[in-house]
Amino acid sequence: MLPLDLDALTGCLASSACLVTQTTSGFIIGMLLFLVAVGLTLIFGVLKVVNFSHGAFYMFGAYFAMTTYQFSGSFALAMLCGAAGTAIIGLIFERGFMSRVYGADVLMQLLVCYAFVLIFDDVVRMIWGPEFKSMGMPAAFQVAPLFIAGGVVPPYYLLLIGVALAAAVVLGLGLVRTRIGKVIRAAAHNPGMVSALGINTGLIYGGVFALGGMLAGLAGALAAPVRSLTPGMGFSVLIESFIVTVIGGMGSILGALIGALLIGLIRSFGSLGFPLFTEGLMYLFMVIVLVSRPTGLFGREVA
């Protein structure tokens, strides 16, 4: 088979059915990535640390959701517990460990994060076991897919896209419009001044970390019904989230959204046009962005 299948790609672009299916498929991949990447970018923007253990939060979110769902049978409660439980872990992780290495060398931060990647994976292994698990689709969503302009769209994925978009809007507005949002942005810009004004920066840092963790946890919870759960499942998601933040620009929420959607669309349309090069396409795109705009599409120039 040829590495290039342009007929399939142009054929798809010409048909509304295919266009709708592939675009929504790109959005699904993109929106989950966005939830993980936006936490990563938020933590970096405010705390100036790259949280390499962010994938573990995604994993915790999925496991919490699965367990809650098994005990309660309520999907909404499962989502809530997935997000809230992960937020608590994020807070403990930041206050207990990350806060001790803020001033330290980046290598030190990397080591602490990597240690926790291994620790968190083993914790999951101890509690839930090494074998893969599946949460199962809630009965409410075990329905036939919708057909929109001939394209196939599963209802669950509509919910998924909706929740992620809502999170993006709330987050964006919250940062711009509310007082807490302003304080967070100020802390990102000049933590010393914010602290001098009598604001508890430790609380803000912990809060931002918890928020980042919560978003990743929410992504994990939303993914749990369709993806298998294993210790270490956060790793591949983390890699793609890094690509997203690099493309969108470290610290930019809009950048994370656009970056994630672009990656999603590249995957969905790339698998048609370049079946043997879909992964490579993603990295190629990242290289192009890095060469033309080293700070990412929406990244600010480093002062």
Partner: peptide, 19 residues
């Protein structure tokens, strides 16, 4: 379709096959 080993998401592979 040749998804990677341990790939978390197969949506693009699923829709490609549907197409």
């Amino acid at each position: 379709s040749w998804p990677k080993l341990f790939q978390p998401d197969y949506t693009e592979v699923v829709t490609k096959i549907l197409q």
